[in-house]
């Protein structure tokens, strides 16, 4: 019983943390069609900004927000300089975002060094003991934050004029433009928001992992599987379901084997799922 409860709770937490990490990718990929291979680097950048700002004595909450803002600005600059010229050419944007990853990683190494950095748990304290389950406090806060961010975005997406515009842009770029929508600005906005979300996620998960120049790599591939399994453009349900599939599977498999084998198995299963449902499990289309 205790094992069941703890596996269930762990799965829920991992699902939400993974959904947080994948969310920026889901936004950029789902709404602009850019396969953002730089997503991992954006997470890493967010984590480093967070580490640096905390080191300067800035409190945790403004630190994380500033990190998100900074990564969002970096994303905007990247979009403005390069990406905007290549929408509609997915291969080129894929290579360019990969180059973004390479350049950003090298800049991180030069500026921050290659040592592992630790970000202290901002809440601290022991896990809350509920008798049958030890609740990891910070992880739970992050999971709730993930829910709030995904839900908030969905609210904007489905209930506001801005959301209608973004959806119009995604459905038919030319028609949206002809109807007077500033498509270029919308793409920029979406790309910048996606980058900021990646930065936010990087900052928020920094206390849970060692901060090092390649910390985003593992999240890049997992985020891709989350987004593709969930279904591209299925921001809310798709991201959550994809995260549940990847994170939950990893947790359950890790019970029976070691971490590495669990991860390999998850990748295999993800590829097999994509083979048979290339449009994503959650996508009706």
């Amino acid at each position: 019983m205790e094992i069941l409860v703890s596996v269930l709770a762990d799965t829920v937490l991992i699902t939400l943390v993974l959904a947080f990490a994948a969310f920026g990718l889901a936004i950029i990929y789902g709404l602009t069609g850019v396969i953002n291979m730089g997503h991992g680097a954006m997470l890493t950048l967010g984590a480093y900004f967070t580490w640096w700002l905390l080191d300067q004595g800035v409190p945790f909450v403004p630190t994380v927000l500033l990190s998100a803002l900074a990564v969002g600005l970096v994303g905007l600059a990247f979009e403005h300089l390069l990406i905007r010229h290549f929408y509609g050419r997915p291969f080129d944007t894929l290579l360019l975002t990969w180059a973004f990853f390479l350049v950003t990683t090298e800049v991180i190494k030069i500026v921050f060094g290659t040592d592992f950095r630790n970000v202290a748990d901002p809440i601290g304290g022991d896990p809350v003991n509920l008798g049958i389950y030890q609740v990891p406090t910070y992880k739970t806060v992050v999971a709730l934050l993930a829910l709030a961010v995904v839900a908030g975005t969905a609210l904007v997406f489905f209930k506001t004029t801005l959301g209608v515009r973004v959806r119009a842009m995604t459905q038919n770029r030319e028609m949206a433009g002809l109807l007077g929508l500033n498509v270029a600005a919308m793409y920029k906005l979406v790309f910048g928001f996606g980058a900021a979300m990646a930065g936010l996620a990087g900052g928020v998960i920094a206390p849970m992992f060692a901060v090092q120049p390649y910390m985003g790599d593992m999240f890049l591939v997992r985020s891709f599987f989350v987004v593709t399994i969930g279904g591209i453009g299925q921001l809310l349900a798709g991201t959550l379901f994809g995260s549940f599939a990847i994170g939950g599977l990893e947790t359950v498999l890790a019970l029976f084997s070691d971490q590495v084998i669990a991860q390999i198995a998850v990748f295999f299963i993800a590829v097999i799922v994509l083979r048979f449902r290339p449009q994503g499990v959650f996508s009706g289309r």
């Binding site: 396969i35 593709t228 390999i264 990748f267 295999f268 590829v271 083979r275 290339p278």
Partner: peptide, 26 residues
């Protein structure tokens, strides 16, 4: 396995990326 299902270019890149990780981890 991938092409016979008409897997698109982007998925193919991700699948080959995963392959590299799998072999390295193995």
């Amino acid at each position: 396995f991938l092409f016979s299902a008409g897997v698109r270019a982007a998925y193919f890149v991700v699948a080959t990326l995963a392959l590299s990780i799998v072999v390295e981890q193995t």
